[in-house]
Design a protein around this nucleic acid. Structure first.
Lengths: 336, 336
DNA sequence: CTGAAAGCGCTTACAG
DNA sequence: CTGAAAGCGCTTACAG
């Protein structure tokens, strides 16, 4: 490995000057700077990260933990989310540390502690925020910068990105009622998740705006997977009073629900309307293509990282909360 | 931050002893060890990673770069793969560094160089291996340990995991011919990818085993996305001689191909058979459910990490090459 | 069994 | 504009 010493020795100058030249300080002679930069390049020198981190007392790394309910954690939302995090971090010369743990598990807690205490990361990105989320409380207590996708109900300052679910659901339910639907069901996720809370609230507001009386029998919950959506839809379709439309908390749930409907011999779009949320996954290519509230996942991830980096640097944020309006993509799954 | 000094001071012993007690050396008095461990725990002490890395000259971190062809990189294969990498790494107290870059791009090269030169990582996991893959050559040259999913055609020692595609395709084509198919098409990926190479070879062997003459008109290639599969299938279906079955390089491609078939008014399973490869994604819940060659992605990722960690530690490997047989899941998409 | 000390490779006040 | 030196927090030979 080439070190700063090697570069200094070759050039017969001090390591101080090499360091300053490379870091772009303006008190280095133009000539010296150019020579240093060229030589470092030629020698293939890159500063040792551990040494730099130790000295600067920051890791130039941000962390993210995948909420893996099961090992078979196949969800395209997360590949796109991580790609967005990685790209935005790299653009600022930060690294992205990724781990995986079941939400609200001992393993999750252990990772947070290890990262926080060992200062492995300068900050974290949190998603799948829960209503009472110990992670946010812990990070606040540790004074470790973080941003989150969706806010909690805790009395903590919220810095991050939020989807404008209320508006999205007004659009979606409006679309469904305009198609003549009034028995609209909801398949959510665990009720302690902020996305379930918001989407359920949005669902209720949407019904209210259309003057439809809510029916508790049309509300059920699953686990954000196709399998969960499939089972939940079977429950709904087994009831005496069946829904004519189902809105689902995410696309994977909707894909499972469509499967259940097909098995019943229902033609999705004609016999029953089904809609998702996310717009990632293969929603454009399901049979029939899935109506969904599309979110720019890659962009959201980038926004989160850029907010986090400003927090880490102690720079002022343009906005503490960014609100993203999901885009209603109407496809055949809700159009007779 | 609590440091080793704080612990030592509180206990009135040297930092040497604290370090040795915590690291489990056996030349520390049992009593001292217990005291140190308990106190460290109570004080919330975790060794500073940067200091440890600098001193040990290893980062206790492995790296992985997502092959993001486009920002909208939605592929459930990768969420599961990363979950597997993260879990296996964490089980050995290693961290996982993730970045993203388009395959074979300048950005990809830059990340490899930064990680290698700055010793950000002790080793890397490579996938989507290309036939002539500069990454493998570069890492070999840098003497940086790595493992790969699928081998290249380069004259380098291969350490990693390989899917037994030949056997998988014999099973799959056998299944299709037993259903009476003889006009079997193939939708692949970029031909410089090892998976395309292997799957195409497997496809040809499968045809040969069934004494079916290959027809170049039935072979086309896409980009591993649903959209690509959709376009490729349209091309195939627009031809004078249409396929009666299509095998696809991955599930996402197959999902797109099913979409194209449906648009043509073909009933998948009855009018045309379509099969995928991977078994992640929502293949069990597509309409109709998708026949696929299922791979244990999470397990494969774990195997790769464990092999890599042995390489990093200079320990002997049980096997340099692990061969995984994909599991043919026959579903309605290929059964009349 | 325990401790004093060196040193990993940087960055950055400080002096000139 | 440049350099000598301190020190970030560890681990580990070495001495006792």
């Amino acid at each position: 490995m080439t070190t700063i010493k090697d570069v200094a020795k070759l050039l017969n100058i001090s390591i101080t000057t090499v360091s300053r030249a490379l870091d772009g300080y303006d008190d280095v002679a133009q000539e010296t700077r150019e020579l240093v930069i060229r030589t470092a390049q030629e020698m293939g020198y890159t500063p040792n990260r551990a040494a730099r981190q130790l000295r600067k007392q920051r890791s130039e790394t941000i962390g993210y933990i995948l909420p893996t309910d099961k090992p078979q954690f196949a969800d395209a939302f997360y590949s796109e989310f991580i790609a967005g995090l990685g790209d935005a971090a790299a653009a600022s010369n930060f690294d992205l540390l990724v781990s995986a743990a079941p939400p609200d598990s001992a393993a999750e807690k252990a990772i947070y502690q290890r990262w926080a205490q060992g200062r492995k990361v300068d900050g974290l990105v949190v998603n799948r925020t829960r209503l009472q989320d110990w992670r946010l409380q812990y990070l606040s207590g540790q004074k470790l910068p973080f941003v989150s996708l969706e806010r909690s109900l805790l009395p903590l300052e919220f810095i991050g990105v939020e989807t404008d679910i209320a508006q999205g659901y007004l659009d979606l339910i409006g679309h469904l009622t305009s198609q003549g639907h009034s028995r609209i069901a909801y398949i959510g996720a665990a009720p302690d998740l902020k996305i379930d809370h918001d989407r359920y609230t949005g669902y209720r507001s949407g019904l209210e705006a259309a003057s439809i009386a809510p029916d508790p029998a049309l509300v059920t919950r699953a686990d954000l997977t196709p399998e969960g959506g499939y089972q939940a839809a079977i429950r709904l379709l087994n009831q005496a009073t069946q829904p004519s439309a189902i809105v689902c908390v995410n696309d994977l749930t909707a894909i499972g629900a469509m499967h259940a409907a097909h098995e019943r011999g229902l033609k999705v779009g004609r016999d029953i309307a089904i809609a998702g949320f996310d717009g990632v996954a293969d929603s454009a290519h399901t049979q029939p293509p899935l109506t969904t509230l599309d979110q720019p996942v890659y962009t959201i991830a980038g926004l989160l990282v850029n907010m986090l980096l400003k927090l880490i640097d102690g720079k002022p944020l343009d906005e503490h909360q960014v609100r993203i309006k999901p885009n209603l993509l109407i496809r055949a799954s809700t159009v007779g």
